[in-house]
Structure formats: structure tokens, C-alpha cells
Amino acid sequence: MAKIHVSTTVNGDAVEFLCNPGETLLDILRNDLQLTGTKEGCGSGDCGACSITVDDRLVCSCLVLAVEAEGKAIGTIEGVADKDQLNVIQQKFLEHAALQCGICTPGLIVSVQALLKENPEPTEEEARYYLAGNLCRCTGYDKIIRAVLDAAETMRGAA
């Protein structure tokens, strides 16, 4: 079985890789591109730990074939901060202690970024439903939702 050559961009960088046709984008990101910030919690789209964006659309990278990345723009947690300057969402997660173990955090931050791009002023309920696919077992979500609403407010203020 011949490997397929894929040209794509990841966090703005032009990237090329070889993959088997059945390999998931998650496996390529983690094992071939060493972008281990994207986490695997379930491999079936039920936990959101592997959330990334493909052409600005939020998806689970465990449910995307790597070959489908051809010509697309991939966004991962590694591209959220501007060098060492944290994004507002990341900063608010820290200020609100919105993480305990931190395994769901990269996927959540990518998802929150997508949420606030689509809806800069979400209600608590809208935020909770948008993020229902990002499981967190540590926090009970309270501080995550507070961080999201605070980040949204801060970003609106800055805009």
C-alpha cells in the first residue's frame, strides 16, 4: 500500500507529510509532526480533546483522515499563542483556574477560540452547548465557563 503525499498548512506553516490512506489527522499531527499538544482521549469524536480547526471549521482530528488535509489550513493549540504571548483565552483560563489536570485544555481552548469567532457575545447557555463536545472530568465546568465569558468580554472590549 503506497503512502500518499499531502501538502497542507499547519498554524500557517507549509507542511508536507506522507500518510497511509486510513490514518487520521490526529495520528499524523501527534506521531509524524510531533505536535503533541492535540490530545487523544477517545478516538471516536466523543471527548473533544483532539479539537482542531480545518479551514476555520472546528472538528475532532480523530474523525478526519490525514489525506483530507490536502490544500487545507489546519489550526492546532500550538498556533493559538503568538510566540510566548498568550492569547486572551489562554490567559483567562489561567486566571480563573479553569484547568486542573490540563488534558482537556488544549482542545477546549481551540474550541473556545472557534466559539468566540462565531459568537463574540455568547450567553452562559450558548457557551455550555457549544462546548458540550469537550469533556472535562476535573472542574465541573464552572471555572471554564467563567473564563470563556470573561475572555469574550475582554476581547469585545479590545475590539
Binding site: 498568550l86 483560563f93 484547568l99 488534558i103
Partner: peptide, 16 residues
């Protein structure tokens, strides 16, 4: 915190 919100923190599956 910085490592954990940027994806730099290494968990059980992250070492090769």
C-alpha cells in the same frame, strides 16, 4: 499553567 494552555506540557502518550 503556561505549558498546559499552550499544549507544550507532556502527558503519558507524548514521549517517543
Amino acid at each position: 499553567g503556561f505549558e498546559k494552555v499552550t499544549g507544550r506540557a507532556n502527558y503519558g502518550a507524548d514521549l517517543s
